[in-house]
């Protein structure tokens, strides 16, 4: 973890586990049910059920078939595979994929402000996530300001301003409809003048198929890079855990056009499993950096593959 070593805080595991309780109860229950007591041999029907569990968690057809295929390979001809072993194999396989996601690089050369873009399709929770991120950075003793660069959606600017008040961060804003890159330009200048540590940039939700909107992001990136050499230091793609297979396409497209440095998975406090992140890390090796597990500023936790897999299985 680069910015924040949250894991050492007492209660991290507990909070994570509580937050993912719905997810966990469901999955663990299902896997226990299908694998029976821990020593009974696994039947082909149970393998099929396993497939259903992974599919039902949005892991996706291809990834599911690969995981299940692997387990079948490893257990072929072995009459005494137990449910216990199957569980271990799934866990290992998920681990292998999620560990592969690559770790976050220590960003930047210390030049201030560190510029953090928050991007994603409409309604994934970008602005709420920004409030939580600010809280996180501030609890590390960093000063934070916001660039209100969602100039499109009605009341988006008002929304980020309220988060500014709540977290005690300055918001650099213009009117609705103004050029988001121009707001960013001002925000960088203001943050630099005031020696702010982190500038978080709110962006309008955009569906990845809208070429012009994706180009607008590229423009913002250019503006940031022109002002500060290593900027943007982070580009977080926010992904809604309820998203299905389109999540993979979203990640692919945002990566291609704006070069994401990490994923933030939101809304994991519901019943959605967010399994699409397995497919995403498998194909794109983007690190998952944080998960959103509620509506208060505290509800953003650093993602840890180990904890995630342990909690789910």
């Amino acid at each position: 973890m680069s910015l924040f070593n949250y894991r050492e805080k007492p209660g991290y595991f507990k909070r994570l586990k509580d937050a993912l309780k719905t997810t966990k109860e469901d999955l663990t229950y299902k896997i226990n049910e299908l694998t029976g007591s821990s020593e009974s041999p696994v039947t082909p029907e149970q393998i099929e059920e396993l497939e259903a569990i992974l599919l039902g968690a949005d892991v996706g057809v291809q990834t599911t078939l690969e995981i299940v295929g692997k387990i079948e390979d490893e257990t072929r001809g072995n009459r005494f595979v137990t449910s216990h072993q199957v569980k271990r194999l799934i866990r290992e396989e998920l681990h292998r994929i999620l560990d592969n996601s690559g770790s976050a690089e220590e960003s930047g050369n210390g030049e201030r402000p560190q510029v953090v873009f928050v991007v994603g399709v409409n309604g994934v929770g970008k602005t709420t996530t920004i409030g939580k991120l600010a809280h996180l950075y501030k609890s590390e003793g960093k000063s934070v300001s916001f660039s209100a660069s969602d100039t499109f959606r009605a009341a988006a600017i008002e929304q980020i301003c309220i988060w500014g008040e709540r977290t005690g961060c300055q918001v650099i804003r213009q009117e609705q409809g103004s050029d988001p890159a121009a707001v960013l330009f001002d925000a960088i200048a203001a943050s630099r003048a005031q020696n702010v540590d982190v500038l978080i940039v709110d962006t309008a939700g955009r569906i990845h198929t809208k070429h012009n909107l994706m180009q607008e992001l590229e423009k913002m990136r250019r503006v940031a890079a022109r002002e500060i050499e290593a900027a943007p230091h982070e580009i977080f793609l926010v992904l809604d855990a309820t998203t299905g297979q389109n999540g993979l396409i979203q990640a692919r497209e945002f990566l291609r056009s704006s070069g994401i440095t990490g994923l933030i998975v939101t809304k994991l406090d519901g019943t959605a499993k967010g399994g699409i992140i397995v497919a995403i890390t498998k194909e794109l090796s983007i690190p998952i950096r944080y998960i959103g597990v509620g509506e208060t500023v505290e509800d953003l936790l650093p993602f840890d593959p180990t904890v995630f897999v342990e909690t789910i299985l």
């Binding site: 599919l55 039902g56 968690a57 949005d58 399709v121 309604g123 809604d240 309820t242 998203t243 299905g244 297979q245 389109n246 999540g247 519901g270 019943t271 959605a272 499993k273 399994g275 699409i276």
Partner: peptide, 8 residues
């Protein structure tokens, strides 16, 4: 949301 997955 049309992008919703299995949890729909």
């Amino acid at each position: 949301d049309a992008m919703t997955g299995q949890d729909a």
